[in-house]
């Protein structure tokens, strides 16, 4: 089993160093007292102080969170519907186009999605007078559109895996299809729906390209703010911001990992118990 492991383990070690050295370096330099972001000038937390007292950053963060929560929620509802439709309704008119429409945004370069959304919004404003001004609403619409297909992919995969018989069983026991949907189907796929929401939320929170095309004056999300600063070069307050974001996300992922490991361990224990009282 452990063949060639020395070589593989060395590559693995270098690989993880490659993954994490840039991030660690960024974290270390966020505590750099020097204004020159890449030259070490002693330890300081002043960049954190200036960051947290910067209203622009705080406003951008809240705008990003607002857009991410709303777009992830709408995208989850629409994406779940599309996933259920594709997994369960095998025959309907326009199914081929529909399944194309839920895959295309996954591989469409963001530049193209961004530009086509922008052109669409500009022309719509010209033709029907809506949207009057670009900003929060146009960003949210664009985010919903390209993140819903990720939800669809996750939900569809989960639906295909799940045992169709449990839905039939519920119907057999007297439930109408819509009741089956709420009693059985949705509860059973709820973990997939939750990961879909989380993914949509993260995608929205992280997006630069599409947001930069669909935004308007006064609507600066956090990635847009970082983007405009980073284009000019490395600055110490971005290091501090990056550190805060990486640590927040890292803590979240580690916590989720621990919870999942615990749940897995409990499930295994349950299964052993079930095996013991097997009659």
């Amino acid at each position: 089993m452990k063949r060639r492991s020395t070589f593989l383990m060395i590559v693995l070690g270098f690989g993880f160093a490659f993954f994490y050295i840039p991030i660690l370096s960024m974290i270390v330099y966020s505590f750099n007292a020097s204004r020159l972001a890449t030259v070490w000038g002693g330890f300081s937390t002043k960049w954190y102080v200036s960051l947290l007292s910067n209203d622009k950053v705080i406003d951008a963060l809240f705008l990003s969170l607002k857009i991410a929560v709303i777009s992830a929620t709408v995208a989850t509802i629409l994406g779940t519907m599309a996933g259920i439709a594709l997994a369960r309704f095998t025959k309907f008119r326009g199914r081929v186009l529909f399944s194309g429409l839920v895959t295309a945004p996954l591989i469409m370069p963001e530049v193209i999605t961004g530009i086509s959304s922008l052109i669409f919004f500009i022309l719509m404003a010209d033709w029907v007078g809506w949207p009057g001004a670009r900003g929060f609403s146009t960003i949210t619409l664009a985010h919903i559109t390209f993140s819903m297909v990720f939800v669809t992919t996750i939900v569809q995969a989960r639906m295909i895996q799940s045992d169709r018989a449990i839905e039939e069983a519920a119907m057999d026991l007297g439930s109408r299809p819509w009741q089956v949907m709420f009693d059985i189907t949705l509860p059973v796929i709820s973990p997939a729906i939750m990961s879909g929401w989380l993914l949509a939320f993260t995608i929205s929170l992280d997006d630069v390209v599409i947001t930069s095309f669909t935004t308007g004056p006064g609507s600066t999300t956090l990635p847009l703010l970082i983007w405009s600063k980073v284009k000019l070069g490395v600055t110490p307050d971005i290091n501090a911001l990056a550190t805060l974001m990486v640590l927040t996300v890292g803590a979240g992922v580690v916590a989720a990992g621990i919870i999942m490991t615990r749940a897995e361990r409990r499930r295994l224990a349950d299964e052993r118990m079930a095996f013991r009282n097997n009659d």
């Binding site: 045992d163 018989a165 449990i166 039939e168 069983a169 519920a170 119907m171 057999d172 026991l173 007297g174 439930s175 109408r176 009693d183 059985i184 509860p187 059973v188």
Partner: peptide, 20 residues
Amino acid sequence: VPPWERPVHMMFQSYAIFPH
């Protein structure tokens, strides 16, 4: 007559126990 209106119930091969 749809399945939910039939006085017929089924025990599925996979048992189809509602997991939740």
